[in-house]
Write a protein that binds this DNA or RNA. Structure first.
Ligand SMILES: [Mn+2]
Ligand SMILES: [Mn+2]
Ligand SMILES: [Zn+2]
Ligand SMILES: [Zn+2]
Lengths: 146, 146
DNA sequence: AGACTAGTTGCAAACGATTTGCATTTGCAT
DNA sequence: ATGCAAATGCAAATCGTTTGCAACTAGTCT
């Protein structure tokens, strides 16, 4: 026992969850899951592909895309389409949060406001709607210190 | 005088504003401005192209795109990238608002919450940022009446 | 361990939205 | 009316993403 314990996050959880759902755990998928669990950033398909190739050069970009769609449909991953650039992904680990994108560096900062969430619900409600999901993205620059 | 007064909105304003900025008022641009001023919906480039062709079949899709970019840079038009679909545009006439997209019909409903806007500012401020712009999009379905 | 089969892969070609090069037109200042 | 930079239409190019297909495996059943 104790064969896999040096992994950054907990990719095992995913693998078992996927297996339980009848989804095959293949070599490419294992690698991609490991990459996604590693850093908590928001990489695009190309970046995931790059990182995956370092582990197994035979992986194809098509498989990265297919796997991301799979994980998205499975609910394990969220896809973001920030202004301009291509889709970026992140594992759905904990609670919901929204994003602030640094226009200068591209850095993505996460935040959460229960008040805003509640207001959104209220607004939708007043309009006669149930919210399925939402996007709140702030685009800004670091404040010039005085 | 009184030659152009039957136009839906006030495309004249735009034309003069553009002229003042040294931008040439060409036939395609005149037509696109007229279309944009007409309905207050959120048409995509293809839809604008379709409507424009009904007025002048010689207009090209490339020019629609070029004009939208021009107007966007000029600040006269906002580009939206709602989930999935292509970019959709709307003239910047009045005050800022956000959008609720009906997932069943694709209909776009506009709303505004001064409280949310303020909270966004506050959050960005706490993170040390100045907001340049933001996107708040609610995706939902009409509430099933009981 | 070997065989079987449906699911998965890599590759290249297809895709949809948007942009661009270029030769030809056009707006508009002179 | 003339001249020229800016704008146009067309087709080809680009970008991100998806897809068809033949070759390959994961998981299952001997
Ligand atoms: Mn995030
Ligand atoms: Mn709007
Ligand atoms: Zn939120
Ligand atoms: Zn807003």
């Amino acid at each position: 026992m104790a064969e896999n314990s040096a992994t950054g996050a907990r990719p095992d959880d995913f693998e078992s969850r996927l297996r339980a759902a009848g989804i095959r755990i293949t070599r490419p998928r294992k690698i991609i899951l490991e990459i996604l669990g590693d850093k908590a950033d928001h990489p695009g398909a190309a970046e995931i592909y790059r990182r995956a190739q370092r582990i197994d050069p035979s992986i194809s970009l098509a498989t990265v895309y297919r796997t991301m769609k799979l994980l998205e449909d499975f609910g394990a991953v969220h896809r973001h389409a920030f202004d301009g650039g291509p889709s970026r992904f992140e594992v759905v680990d904990g609670d919901h949060h929204d994003h602030l994108i640094d226009l200068d560096t591209g850095k993505v900062i996460e935040f959460h406001s229960e008040t805003i969430e509640r207001l959104q619900e209220q607004i939708a409600d007043e309009l006669g709607y149930d919210i399925e999901h939402h996007r709140l993205e702030l685009y800004g620059r670091k404040r010039r210190e005085r």
